[in-house]
Amino acid sequence: MRATSEDAHDIAQVHVLAWQAAYEGIVPAEHLAIQSVAKREAAWREAIATGTPEILVAKADDQLVGWIAFGPSRDKNAGSKAAEVWAIYVAPSHWSRGVGRLLWLHARERLAEQGYESVSVWVLAENTRAMKFYRAAGFVAEPTGQKEVMMAGKSLQELRYETALNG
Rank of each mutant, 00 (worst) to 15 (best):
Q13I: 01
E162H: 13
H9W: 11
E142N: 13
A107H: 01
A107K: 02
V121R: 04
V37L: 04
R45L: 12
L124S: 09
F139C: 10
I88S: 04
D75T: 13
R97Q: 15
T4I: 01
A42R: 13
M131I: 11
G71L: 02
L105T: 08
R74K: 15
V99R: 03
E148K: 14
E84M: 06
A42I: 11
Y134G: 12
N127I: 09
L102I: 07
G153N: 12
A130M: 04
S155R: 15
R97S: 11
G51R: 00
E54T: 14
A29L: 10
Q146D: 10
A42E: 14
H94G: 08
G66S: 11
T128E: 14
G51M: 02
A82V: 13
N166P: 00
R110F: 02
G145W: 05
K154R: 15
R40C: 07
A22I: 02
S93N: 10
E30Q: 14
D61R: 14
E148Q: 15
V149G: 07
E148F: 08
L17K: 15
K59P: 00
V140S: 09
N166S: 14
E126A: 15
P143F: 04
V14R: 02
W104Y: 07
I68R: 06
Q157A: 13
A87W: 03
P53R: 08
A137P: 00
V90S: 01
E6C: 04
I26R: 06
R135M: 11
I68N: 02
A130Y: 03
L102G: 14
V90T: 11
S120G: 13
A47V: 03
I55V: 10
A42H: 11
D10P: 01
V140A: 12
P92D: 10
Y116E: 02
R129Q: 14
L159N: 10
R45F: 03
A112I: 02
L32W: 06
E158Q: 14
W95I: 10
V90H: 05
T4K: 05
G153W: 07
L111E: 05
R135F: 00
H9L: 07
Y134D: 09
L156Q: 15
Q20N: 09
A137K: 09
T52W: 00
R40G: 10
V119A: 01
A112M: 01
L17T: 14
I68Q: 06
G145T: 13
R135P: 00
G153H: 11
A137N: 11
V121M: 05
G100E: 05
W86P: 00
L159W: 13
A136Y: 06
M150L: 14
L111F: 05
H31S: 15
D61F: 05
N77S: 13
V121Q: 03
W95P: 06
L124M: 13
H106R: 08
H9P: 00
V85H: 05
E113A: 08
P72S: 15
H15W: 06
A164Q: 07
I55F: 02
K59M: 09
T163D: 00
G79M: 03
A137M: 15
A87D: 07
M151W: 10
